[in-house]
Design a protein around this nucleic acid. Sequence first.
RNA 1: GGAGCGGUAGUUAAGCUGGUUAUAACGCCGGCCUGUCACGUCGGAGGCCACGGGUUCAAGUCCCGUCCGCUCCGCCA
Length: 627
Amino acid sequence: MTDQTTTAPTQSEERDYDEYRVIEDLGGWKRTHTCNELTAADLGREVTLMGWVQFRRDHGGLIFIDLRDREGLTQTVFSPEGDADAKQAHERAHAIRIEYVVALRGIVSRRPEGMSNPGMLTGEIEVVVQQWKLLNTSDTPPFPIEDRVDAAEMLRLKYRYLDLRRPRLARNLILRNKAAQSVRRYLDSLGFLEIETPVLTKSTPEGARDFLVPSRMTQGAFYALPQSPQIFKQLLMVAGLDRYFQIVKCFRDEDLRADRQPEFTQIDIEMSFPDEEQVMAMAEGLVRTLFSETIGAELPASFPRMSFQQAMDEYGVDKPDVRFGLKLADVKDIFAGGGFKVFAAAPCLKAMRVPGGLELSRKEIDDYTEFVKIYGAQGLAWIKIKEDGEWQSPIVKFFSEDEKARLAECLGMAPGDIVFFQAASADVANASLGNLRLKLGERFGLIDEGAFAPLWVTDFPLLEYDPEDKRWVAKHHPFTSPQPGQMDTIATDPGGALARAYDLVLNGSEIGGGSIRIHTPAAQKAMFQALGISDGEAEEKFGFLIEALKFGAPPHGGIAFGLDRIIMILTGAKSIRDVIAFPKTQKATCLMTDAPNVVAKKQLRELGIQVREKAAANQTEDKQAEA
RNA sequence: GGAGCGGUAGUUAAGCUGGUUAUAACGCCGGCCUGUCACGUCGGAGGCCACGGGUUCAAGUCCCGUCCGCUCCGCCA
């Protein structure tokens, strides 16, 4: 063990601290406080803290250990002076390392004059340790457990339990719990019953791709995981339970986004005998209570509303961020029949005036041009209005004087502005300018990050055309009631029929949506017919619902909130993964458990399932590559 | 299905137009240190440059392919 080589002799022998690293039992010790609650009011108390070692500062003499638990940090001190216990505690403390789990017993003391740390809630005091127990050691963590260091997300997801030790993530989960409790209290106080619905249920043809679960008992048949408990909550209304809610996992096998996971959580709500106003009033109360009780934010007493049509016209999207302006304008009429063919011939021509946009560089405009191409745009036309009023633009030379005058008036153009144009299909024009608007809102600092701007979007179309399937599909879902008198419109003008549906948008994020449902068998059948679902198929897929509607289904409606997205807004998280304890990667895998994974042949045989050769070969290759 | 960004010590990054032994900081190991708080200080160890091909006298660097992570389009009633 002793090194006999020619290295220079050290002044003292190197020590092996392992003799101090013997893991002990709690031995009856009980935690008396968390690491975020001791203050000067506790001076002189003997306390017992338990937690993880955040930092150690070993001065040879004094040793400082910052102890962490989910609540916070407390500084503890080991001194070489004091009684025999304290001396021994100090000697052994040289062996403590980061992330060791320890129990410390000592006296709450005031820090010496000028040594308090105003940055810590417990910064006035420290615990002078008399005895301590090593509850567990820790390998050096693969990344620092600190908010200020951001490790690669791949690593964080693999060692998720370490990532969750970081205060920022722990705080998000703590707030999530607070939010869930707030929702439960609010809904309970209004007489809503929390009722669980099945996770193993039936695949439905409309909507997102289902996750399937093979049945062992009925070979060749599959359950589906619910995209939402929609039909069950309607059946609970038929059952006369009157008011239902559930904080519930939903599953959709679609591609992921920064705010989308394949399994996510809804606050699902349904009530009997309401109209839109009652559902929306209840929902506003829920959101107001939630924001007030979790982060102390007071939302407006009544949320503004906007029709879907107005949202698309003015913001280009169905979930407008109304924290700032930069509205879009339809300028098609001005250039219709004019000499500039690109504008005159476009099915849709929209413009967005950006005050201060004169300062945009050529490179920035080029970048924005690339940006809108994502949404299918061919290019991005623009006009800068210089301080002297002159228009600078590659396209103005094609405009007539009359067109220029009408445009200037329509948009209220002023020196210092830039105006962007999009001539395209309505979908492309709206999507490209609507998303460019968000980018410019950030670029020009128009977004008040501390503001909360809720908005109801109403009067959604009942149906939208699916060019792929060449048929009309429900925009919300096929159980949504048309607005009064719209049933006839479905036949004459399917796209023009309006639904009794509403979305709640907050800061440009869709956080909830619902509708008044169809509650008569005749109307439900008519809807299926409009969607091109045959009687036979309707019977097979939704027969139980139509049947139920025959037995005195009350008028009912409800709403579902995306809890994850709400928590994102409450915590300021940029990614949905930061508000979920164990999230999945963009490829919908879990780096910690390595799910999904192959299963034993025996399991497949029991289920009557055979994996196709090609898929099986891919899996084998994957596993070999990892090995 | 498609577009973009990224992958180099344990970690975070640098590494230009290919050219000696691949840098730095933090962390880790050890010495010294009684008021630190991201302690200080001295020394040390630590690398399949994601993986597989190719070009070249020479590849972390150039080319092709694959895998993985992230953002976006499509998709998400």
